[in-house]
């Protein structure tokens, strides 16, 4: 008997992927299974589309029109992700002068600019070294039409 070939090989399962298998819904009775079962992919979930980091995602509502140039209007809902690090030209919620504000954040070598998208509002300049921090980066905007 060739021992080596008889030996059971044990493979460790890989746990670090996050794939969900689609479920076939119709149970198997006698009769015809649904021809669609093989193509079943689960319904679309808006949450999965817009929420990448569930623990870090917060919703916020826009008040005012300083970002109207980008189509962001009063009442729109922002999907804000605190897990995403601020990057140059990101749309972000920042805490400035005692309130949350929505701006494009330009990160230049000697300063940070908070840029509105409406000529009626000024660009805010923040010197490097001040304790300014972006609260969260906006990933999606939910808009009622």
């Amino acid at each position: 008997m060739k021992r080596d070939e008889d030996r059971l090989k044990i493979y460790r399962p890989q746990h670090d992927t996050d794939i969900e298998l689609p479920m076939a819904e119709s149970t198997v009775h006698a009769g015809f299974p649904s021809p669609a079962d093989d193509f079943l992919e689960g319904s679309l979930d808006l949450d999965r589309l817009v929420v990448r980091h569930p623990e870090a995602t917060f919703f916020a509502r826009v008040e005012g029109d300083s970002m109207i140039g980008e189509g962001i209007a009063e009442g729109d809902i922002l999907v804000v992700d605190k897990a995403v690090e601020a990057y140059d030209n990101c749309l972000a919620v920042a805490y400035v002068d005692g309130e949350f504000t929505l701006k494009r954040v330009r990160m230049l070598h000697d300063k940070i600019l908070l840029v509105p998208a409406n000529p009626r509002y000024p660009t805010i300049e923040i010197a490097t070294g001040s304790d300014f921090a972006v609260w969260g980066v906006v990933r999606w905007i939910v808009k009622r039409v």
Partner: peptide, 15 residues
Amino acid sequence: KYTTDWEQIIRVKAH
């Protein structure tokens, strides 16, 4: 209730 009620979520100023 910033995280559990749509009417009470964070308000962000755009002005």
